[in-house]
């Protein structure tokens, strides 16, 4: 159990009243203003050398994900190979940030990554009754420790949105604290809000602080199962939260948008947000990840175009 999680950065004492008091001091988010800011940043034109840099950076930040009922050993192994060598004919392409799978696939993924030269790529496991979060605490704890025992280096837990929306903020907080304890020093904790269900930016801001106080290493937008997911304004609000939390605590919390980021243009918009909202210190896989699957191939294709000077075809990109 980390020190941080025991004293909550000295900002709250773990009680319901102190948590409520802290969260009530957060300023509101004006929806129109936040969306206008995100839209303005989306007009940034990233060309030539900076685009090349952004593509490689984005690839290194991808949490390459498969979260399907139909996932099999074969599917997961193929994904792990892809994670290590996104473009098998060009080994200059960096490997991804992590592979993200369901809990029962963690062992397979870990084993295969080690086999194909990806021993430096962590496996992230979705946890705590992903994606709904509807299970007993005992099940959630078991779910998490199973994943860690199978070799997960990162835990992507979901919060109980029902509890959050009904006002049981301390309940949500305590769940995160407990999962944080289970992770200990063995796994990084990413906390998924499912922003499409929290709906308002005020809730996103509140959830961000709640999770950071409870010991999250990363805050993550979505499960990928609910739309809208990682929209630019949602990510903007979360980046503001980690920036301001750093000012309070000198601790940098990571951000992971997931869901809906499908092409290079979307990914570069995310990097622009990181650069101009949180700051360049966050432009590292240690502090920013993009949860995606199809995105990786588009990044690889755009990279090919930049190398070759003509547009690429999907025939030249592996489909795994």
């Amino acid at each position: 159990m980390s020190l941080v999680a025991t004293n909550f950065y000295g900002l709250v004492d773990g009680s319901d009243s102190s948590l409520k008091k802290f969260l009530s001091t957060l300023p509101g988010v004006d929806q129109v203003g936040a969306e206008a800011r995100a839209a303005m940043l989306a007009t940034r034109s990233i060309k030539t050398t900076s685009k090349r840099w952004a593509i490689d950076t984005a690839i290194s930040m991808v949490d390459l994900t498969t979260l399907e009922g139909a996932d099999t050993r074969g599917k997961v192994e193929a994904l792990c190979t892809k994670a290590v060598r996104p473009d098998p004919i060009n080994l200059a392409v960096p490997h991804v940030g992590a592979v993200c799978v369901y809990n029962d696939m963690v062992g397979i993924a870990r084993h295969h990554l080690d086999l194909v030269g990806g021993n430096n790529i962590p496996v992230a496991a979705v946890s705590t009754a992903f994606p709904s979060g509807r299970a007993s605490m005992a099940v959630k704890i078991q779910d998490t420790s199973d994943a860690i025992n199978a070799g997960a280096g990162e835990i992507d837990m979901v919060i109980d949105r029902g509890a959050f929306l009904s006002g049981d903020l301390i309940g949500v907080f305590e769940e995160i604290v407990k999962i944080r304890e289970v992770c200990g020093e063995k796994a990084h904790l990413k906390v998924i809000f499912e922003t499409g269900e929290l709906v308002t930016y005020d809730n996103v801001r509140k959830a961000s602080y709640l999770a950071m106080l409870a010991g999250a290493d990363f805050i993550k937008t979505s499960t990928g199962k609910v739309a809208p997911a990682a929209t630019p304004p949602v990510v903007l609000v979360m980046l503001e939260a980690v920036r301001d939390f750093y000012a309070m605590t000198k601790t940098r919390i990571g951000v992971k948008p997931a869901g809906g980021i499908r092409n290079t243009k979307d990914a570069i918009k995310q990097l622009v947000l990181v650069n101009e909202i949180a700051g360049p210190e966050w432009l590292t896989p240690a502090l920013f990840r993009i949860g995606a699957s199809a995105l990786l191939n588009d990044l690889v294709m755009q990279r090919m175009k930049m190398d070759d000077g003509y547009y690429a075809s999907p025939s030249y990109v592996t489909i795994d």
Partner: peptide, 9 residues
């Protein structure tokens, strides 16, 4: 890391 935006005239 720094993210320099190349000129986009």
């Amino acid at each position: 890391m720094t993210f320099e935006y190349a000129p986009a005239p």
